[in-house]
Simulated scan of single mutants.
Amino acid sequence: MTRLTEEVPFEMAGMRLDQVLAELFADYSRSKLQSWVKSGRVQVNGLTLKPRDKLVGGETIALDAEAEIVITAEPEPIPLEIIFEDESLLIVNKPAGLVVHPAIGNWNGTLLNALLNHDSSLETLPRAGIVHRIDKETSGLLMVAKTLQAHNSLTQQLQDRDITREYLAITRGRMTAGGTVDEPIGRHPTDRKRYAVRENGKHAVTHYRVGQRFTRHTLVQVKLETGRTHQIRVHMAHIRFPLLGDQVYGGRFQMPPDCSEQLEKELRSFKRQALHAAKLGLQHPVTDEYLEWEQPLPEDMIRLLEALAENERD
């Protein structure tokens, strides 16, 4: 049994307890939450209420969540590069090409399957403890909760924007300076697999600064203020600096002029978006200590940068 607590936002004033629970504890089914209310495992400001009782906002909800198997995926012996692990937290370095969570077309061979093989107790956590995702073809740091308490803490830190997430990316085009993209992101109006800057989208903010300039490319350091799906890829494409290798948002591939043989070889063989989750920082869910990890670029991006630099010297 793990006690989870949330404060009811004032914008939820007038909503029923069962509706508020479904919003604040979305990792659990409505039927499970209702059964916990009826069994006295949910308290509002220390009182036991009925599912249909209305709230006024500002109350503190305490939920005694019971660990149970919520994952039906199978464990698979997929190698994991573990950067940090203790009793409540796991930090992994995800390689490019590994899907984070099972979905249509990728039911097996995912990071979630690997996590279940590493620690079978993760089957009692929503999404096996995975708190956030990075795209299949993006490499780098990703955090995993190992307990319900840690899951609740990390999820809250994400919502409060207290998690440090910094990326390294290689864009097409030479940037003159860094900046901020503050544009809402939503589903593409015609292609449901893509996202786009849209007026009715969700608030999204991306900060970026130049790391290294090349003739027709730029290494940029990107810091996320929000965490929308494909955010960096969409925002960089929006300002006309799409990520190198991004086949979804980057448009048709074009070999740059005055390209050395080595650079042409690296560009043609680079089949993913040049994006790496390089830094991750958070408050430890138990000790409250601030922890931060950095992961250097993977070999394919290093070779690409070396070829870009060498091409400048030719």
Rank of each mutant, 00 (worst) to 15 (best):
R213W: 10
F214K: 00
F214P: 03
F214Q: 01
F214V: 05
T215G: 13
T215N: 15
T215W: 13
T215L: 14
R216G: 15
H217K: 08
H217M: 10
T218M: 05
T218N: 04
V220L: 11
V220H: 06
Q221P: 10
Q221D: 14
Q221K: 15
V222H: 00
V222L: 02
K223A: 14
K223D: 11
L224T: 03
L224W: 01
L224E: 01
E225Y: 11
E225M: 10
E225L: 11
E225S: 12
T226C: 07
G227I: 07
G227T: 07
G227N: 05
G227M: 06
R228Y: 09
R228W: 09
R228T: 08
R228F: 09
T229H: 09
T229K: 09
T229S: 09
T229P: 09
T229F: 09
T229V: 10
H230S: 07
H230V: 06
H230A: 08
H230P: 06
H230C: 07
Q231W: 03
Q231N: 04
Q231T: 04
I232P: 00
I232N: 02
I232Q: 04
R233K: 03
V234Q: 01
V234Y: 00
V234G: 00
H235R: 00
H235Y: 03
H235F: 03
M236F: 09
M236E: 05
M236L: 11
A237E: 11
A237V: 12
A237Q: 10
A237S: 14
A237D: 10
H238M: 13
H238A: 12
H238V: 12
I239N: 09
I239A: 11
R240L: 15
F241Y: 12
F241A: 10
F241M: 10
P242K: 01
L243A: 00
L243W: 02
L244E: 00
L244R: 03
L244N: 01
G245N: 00
D246Q: 01
D246K: 04
D246W: 00
Q247D: 15
V248D: 13
V248K: 14
V248A: 14
Y249Q: 04
Y249G: 05
Y249R: 05
Y249H: 07
G250M: 02
G251Q: 04
G251N: 00
G251T: 01
R252T: 11
R252G: 09
R252C: 10
R252Y: 09
R252Q: 11
R252H: 09
R252S: 10
F253I: 05
F253E: 03
Q254F: 10
P257V: 06
P257W: 06
D258Q: 13
C259H: 07
C259D: 08
C259N: 08
S260A: 08
S260L: 06
S260D: 08
E261K: 14
E261C: 12
E261W: 13
E261H: 13
Q262I: 14
Q262S: 15
Q262T: 15
Q262A: 14
Q262V: 15
Q262F: 13
L263D: 04
L263Y: 02
L263N: 02
E264M: 12
K265R: 15
E266H: 12
E266A: 13
E266V: 13
E266L: 11
L267Y: 06
L267T: 07
L267C: 08
R268Y: 12
R268C: 13
R268A: 13
S269C: 12
F270D: 03
F270H: 07
F270I: 08
F270W: 07
